[in-house]
Amino acid sequence: MISFDNVTKHYKNTSMPALAEIDLNIEQGDFVFLVGASGSGKSTLLRLLLREETATSGTVTVDGVNVAKIRHRDVPAYRRNMGIVFQDFRLLPGKTVFENVAFGMEVIGKHKSEIARKVPALLELVGLEEKSHRLPSELSGGEQQRVAMARAFVNQPKLLLADEPTGNLDPATSVGIMKLLDRINRIGTTVIMATHDVATVDQMRKRIVQMEDGKIVRDQERGMYGQSGQAL
């Protein structure tokens, strides 16, 4: 589904490439942890997938499409095939839980009746149907992240990108979020999650891609964070 073929990304005014000759394949339905220190290239990898950036050399292919070749005006349509969750939740403080999720549908022109039908179903998926009229400030961090996940899922994307989704949450709450991600993964969604969270990674026992200085130093099925990176 996703393939990085000899991908290098060089940002302007930097001496070291953010990504250096990366090769990576991810199949539909995979659950992949992207681990590594800050600045190791995790975020750049996600940004290339979102097409917020394009590779300096090499090709990124998603669903058979060369991402760099997508025309500017077709980028929004491309992004509707993926959902994204951030560390800081990015909820709108003035809108209720329901409205926050609805916002994601309104801005892509979905009809009111579809929104009224779909949003409750999404809130039920993340276990917040009872709190749909609360404001984000009245929710715990974990609940806020669930709202953000419901919103990321409005288009039923085939791919969910999560950038440190548990970074601001305590371990117990993180478990809940991971269970939800696991559930989303089990219905066929590919999940790519960038994280520092050792406990979470070890507990899930999923595929681990470890990065260092823009290179992949480990790609392991059912891995643990703690295992030191061995040469591929």
């Binding site: 979102l50 500017h72 005006r73 929004p76 349509a77 491309y78 992004r79 509707r80 095939n81 959902g83 994204i84 990015r90 709108l92 916002f103 994601g104 801005v107 892509i108 022109g109 919103r151 990321a152 409005v154 288009n155």
Partner: peptide, 17 residues
């Protein structure tokens, strides 16, 4: 900026942003 970043990430068209 928060609204617009959300709009971008859910694939709102440039014109609607």
């Amino acid at each position: 900026r928060r609204e617009t970043s959300i709009m971008r990430s859910v694939g709102a068209s440039n014109i609607s942003i």
